[in-house]
Every structure is written in structure tokens, then in C-alpha cells.
Simulated assay, not measured.
Amino acid sequence: MIVVATSDFEVYHGVVNELRDRGVTFTTIEVDDELPDSTTVVVTSEDDADAFEDDPVTTIVAEPDAARRAAEQALSALRGEGGRTIVGVDPGRRPGIVVCSGEMVVAGFQVPLGDAIDVIEREVADATDPVVRIGDGSRLESAKLVNELEDVRVELVDETGTTPYLGTGARGMGDVLAAVNIARLEGEVVENRDIEPTAGELQVIKDRSRERSETNRAIDEELARRVAAGELTVEEALAEHRNGSDGESDGHGSRSS
């Protein structure tokens, strides 16, 4: 059983809420109370940790701003898992991202591609020997993720068959569920992924830029290639395109689109 015992209100409040959100059975005691006989894991604060150093239990020290991490560590210890952090990513314009501790999924996200690196790096920051497994579909987006991740083991996974069937009411969950399946598959360790964009992929980027342009203009192929390589976002490419067009039109009157 998990026991929360701390005099730090922030730690107590944060950890208790995290455990309740997960439907975990736990109990709370005062720091000076004796631990229940069924205790296997104690979650406490740094200032209170000494009170449990002689008890034959696993002690998790929680920081006030890292309650979720402490709850995940407690659950991993409770289940006797190795606790290795594995991040699975189903790439795309809004990647599905899951964080697993051993065999258990402890967190899930779906964020814009531009925010994905920050999410992944935050989730592996304090982990021991983490691995990030990225599906090999959505070639341009997966290449961007592979190339921007540093100081962590990255595996490229064959994502064939990882997208599940979605029944009634499960719309919008496909990318996150696919990320769970990707996390469970071993892949090829990679440090970078060089992709030559196809004509069709470049056209998709151009079309996307036209949709976002206030003047209904698409970026040119050179800028589209830079977007494909992850050097620019579509918005940054539009700004360069706009500035270049303005410069070309100086002294020559207005240009037709």
C-alpha cells in the first residue's frame, strides 16, 4: 500500500490529488505515526524523509512542483516494475505522446508538433536510462522529432498496425492510443533521420501555408523545403516569404498575387 506522510502541505496536496486522479488506493498519516503493516511505499518530502530511513519500505521523496512524478514513481515501486521511462510518439502535426513506467501508462498528451520536443524532454528529464520510441510514419514530422531530440536514446519504430480501431465515443483518441502501441515496440536506435521531401509533401506544405496566409499566398519551394527539414515553421516561412516579396516590390509598384 502507498502511504503519504509529510508535513509539507504543498507536497501533501499535490501527491494526494495525483493519486486520487489515478484511482489509487492509499492512506495518509502524520509523520510521527507508525506506518501501517501493509505499507510498501511511503511518499514524503525532503524535510521528512529521515523519519522513514529505518523502515523496510520504499521511500519516494516528492518536490512541491513535481507531485505527478512522485505519484508515478510510487506506482512503479508498488507494482515492482523496473520503472524504466519509455515515451511513445505517434508523429504528425499533433503528435500523440504517452509516457510509460515499465508496463504502465502514466501520462498522455496530444500537442502541436512545435510543442512536442518540450513535452518529451520534460518527461525524460529526471528519468534513469529513458528511451523515446517514435513511429516511422508521417516522415517529415518524425524526422523533425528525431533530429531535435538530444541526450536521450531514440528508437525509430515500424508503426505498421499500431493505429487501433476506434469504436463509438473514442474519436480523437487514435493518435494517443497508437503512441501506446509504439511505446511497446522495440525499434532501431537512430541519432538523425534525413528525409528528402517528395513533390506531394512539398505541395501539402505549400497548401498549408496558403491556408494560413492573410493574402492567400503560398510559400515557394525553397521555403517549403526548409519547413520540411524543420528549419522553419509555416508561420516563419510565411514571414520570410512576405518580407522577400515586399523587398522585391520596392520601387516597382504593387505585385499581383
Rank of each mutant, 00 (worst) to 15 (best):
V24H: 02
G251P: 08
S38A: 15
V119L: 03
T162V: 04
G161L: 05
E150D: 14
E196N: 12
R208W: 03
Y165I: 11
G83Q: 11
S142M: 07
A143E: 01
E63V: 00
V89C: 04
S256F: 10
G187N: 08
R255Y: 14
I205E: 02
V180G: 00
G96C: 12
V106N: 03
V24G: 02
A66R: 15
V106M: 11
A224R: 05
S142H: 06
D194S: 13
G161N: 04
L113E: 13
P112F: 02
E18L: 03
R69N: 05
E34F: 05
G200S: 13
D158H: 10
V152A: 08
A71D: 09
A228E: 10
R122N: 13
M104I: 02
I2L: 08
T58Y: 09
V106S: 04
A229F: 01
N17Y: 07
R22M: 11
Q73F: 00
A49Q: 11
I182F: 06
R122G: 14
K206F: 03
P95T: 02
T162Q: 05
R225W: 02
A5S: 15
D90K: 09
G174Q: 04
R242T: 13
T233Y: 01
L140R: 03
A107W: 03
S213F: 01
G174T: 03
D50P: 00
E159S: 15
D115I: 00
G88N: 06
G161R: 04
R153T: 15
R20W: 06
A239P: 00
G167N: 09
V105M: 12
L75N: 06
H13K: 15
E186N: 15
V119A: 06
D90N: 07
A199F: 05
E211Q: 13
G253H: 07
F52V: 11
L223E: 10
